[in-house]
Simulated scan of single mutants.
Amino acid sequence: MTPTTLQIPELIRTLRKRLNLSQEKFAARLGVSFQTVNRWEKGRAVPSPMAIKLIELQLRQMGERGADLLEAYFSDGG
């Protein structure tokens, strides 16, 4: 399962804040532009499938700090 279009802004913002990163630094970590992250957070654009995979990877690398977000946004329910 992947996050829905309506969930993406909240997911991106929450993840970025947990990592204590600005939009610029979060963008650099994912290999996208600041404007791209800004558009994701405002709901004006959605991440590509590759960017979604990178976001999921960031959550997995966080361990317990990202476990609830993984469950909420990426769980397949079983």
Rank of each mutant, 00 (worst) to 15 (best):
L59H: 07
D76I: 12
R44F: 13
R39K: 15
K53I: 05
S22W: 02
D76A: 10
R39N: 14
F74V: 01
R18T: 04
P49A: 08
Y73W: 08
E24M: 14
I8A: 07
R13T: 10
A27T: 07
K42H: 11
E41W: 06
G63N: 07
S48H: 11
G31A: 02
G66Q: 02
A45N: 12
Q61T: 09
S75Y: 09
W40K: 00
A67E: 13
Y73H: 05
K42Y: 05
R44W: 08
S48E: 14
Q23V: 12
L57W: 11
T4S: 13
A51R: 10
L21G: 02
M1T: 15
T36C: 09
E41F: 02
P9N: 05
D76V: 13
L19Q: 12
L70W: 04
L69A: 01
R29C: 06
S75F: 09
K53N: 07
S22L: 04
G31D: 03
R13F: 08
P3F: 05
E10F: 11
G78P: 06
L59T: 02
P9R: 01
A72V: 09
L6Y: 11
A28C: 06
A27M: 03
L11T: 00
Q35I: 04
T4M: 04
E71S: 14
W40V: 03
G66V: 04
A67N: 09
T36M: 13
K53P: 00
Q35E: 15
L21I: 07
T14E: 14
A51G: 07
A45W: 07
M62K: 03
M50I: 12
L59I: 05
T2P: 03
L54I: 04
I8M: 13
R18P: 07
V46F: 10
L59A: 01
K42D: 08
A51W: 04
R60Q: 14
E10S: 12
Q61S: 10
F26P: 01
A27V: 09
E10K: 15
S33K: 08
Q61C: 08
K42E: 10
L54C: 09
F34M: 12
I55F: 09
E56R: 14
R60K: 15
A28W: 02
S48Q: 12
Q61V: 09
M1R: 15
R39Q: 14
K53R: 10
I12G: 02
P49C: 04
G43P: 08
I12T: 06
A27H: 03
A51M: 07
Y73V: 04
G78C: 04
R29W: 03
M50N: 12
A45M: 11
L11M: 10
G77K: 06
G31V: 02
A27K: 02
G31P: 00
T2S: 10
R44G: 13
L54T: 08
G63H: 04
Q7E: 15
L70C: 01
A72F: 14
I8E: 03
T2K: 14
A51Y: 08
E64D: 14
G77H: 06
R65G: 12
G63K: 04
I55L: 10
N38E: 13
V37T: 01
V46Q: 15
L70G: 04
N38V: 01
